[in-house]
Amino acid sequence: MWDRAGPWAGLVARLGLAGVWLYAGGTKVGDLAASGRAVNAYQIMPFGVAQVIGAMLPLVEIVVGLLLLAGLATRTAAAFSALLLAVFIVGIASAWARGLQIDCGCFGSGGQLASGESPTYGWEIARDIGFLILAGYLLLRPDSRFSADRRFTAGPAQR
């Protein structure tokens, strides 16, 4: 039963996570400086470092999204996703613990809260944990329907 349903579940997880990354990267890629400011808003690293990370992040997110969309190197993409999400969760939790008044900057806000808005750290963390579960599933069971991996490896990918 699961042998047949698993790859379909994999497809859903893969496309879901792909959508998240493509959206996250897409909303940020138009303003790389704002992306750097969003990273800097966490006040975790020096401004110059935050700028570099912020400039790199949107395109990296888009490429992870494309890999997942195609189902190419699914396990590697899932592992990288999990790593990134874990970093984001730690970052948001740390901002929360320090009482910073910021937006997570997850989807291209430059780290600023809209006027009159309060931080929503709990929701942001819950959301990222949801994404982390998708990534974790794919990490354990990378095989999915309609994936490039299946084509290149001529059959279901190994576990």
């Binding site: 890629v29 790389l32 400086a33 750097g36 700028q51 570099v52 400039a55 790199m56 992040l57 949107p58 395109l59 990296v60 888009i62 490429v63 992870v64 890999l67 190419l72 190197a73 396990r75 590697t76 993409a77 990288f80 490039a148 991996d149 290149f152 490896t153 001529a154 059959g155 990918a157 190994q158």
Partner: peptide
Amino acid sequence: QRRKATLWTSVIAAAALLVAGVVGYGIF
């Protein structure tokens, strides 16, 4: 053969991620 294919796609994926980061910084 499958093991090799998996390995190579992983290497290509990792390289693509690295290139994306460098290009992003270059644009900035």
